[in-house]
């Protein structure tokens, strides 16, 4: 799906946990998430921490859409 969207020329960022699979499939902009069942917020963590993490990673994803990348890129996240 990511590739079909990108084929139209729309920049797309894949937020996923299985980064190696996304790379193998050929995704160009990737932002890692923390798990499969809860990509952007660990239910065991306090609400505030979950929010911080989600806000941060979505921000990284937005910056990825605006980044002029030349090759497949996995963007770094701080939290």
């Amino acid at each position: 799906m990511v590739k079909e969207i990108e084929k139209t020329g729309l920049p797309v960022v894949h937020m996923c946990n299985l980064v190696p699979i996304s790379l193998t499939v050929g995704t160009n902009r990737i932002v890692p998430t923390i798990s499969i069942p809860y990509p952007l917020g660990d239910p065991a963590a306090p609400q505030e921490e979950q929010w911080k993490l989600r806000y941060h990673r979505v921000g990284v994803a937005l910056d990825a859409l605006a980044a002029d990348v030349k090759e497949q890129t996995v963007f770094k996240v701080k939290i």
Partner: peptide, 18 residues
């Protein structure tokens, strides 16, 4: 989906996977 997004004038996409 891409066709609809393009027609709607969307500029970028965040696709989340589990």
């Amino acid at each position: 989906i891409a066709r609809e997004l393009l027609e709607a004038g969307v500029d970028g996409v965040i696709l989340t996977s589990t």
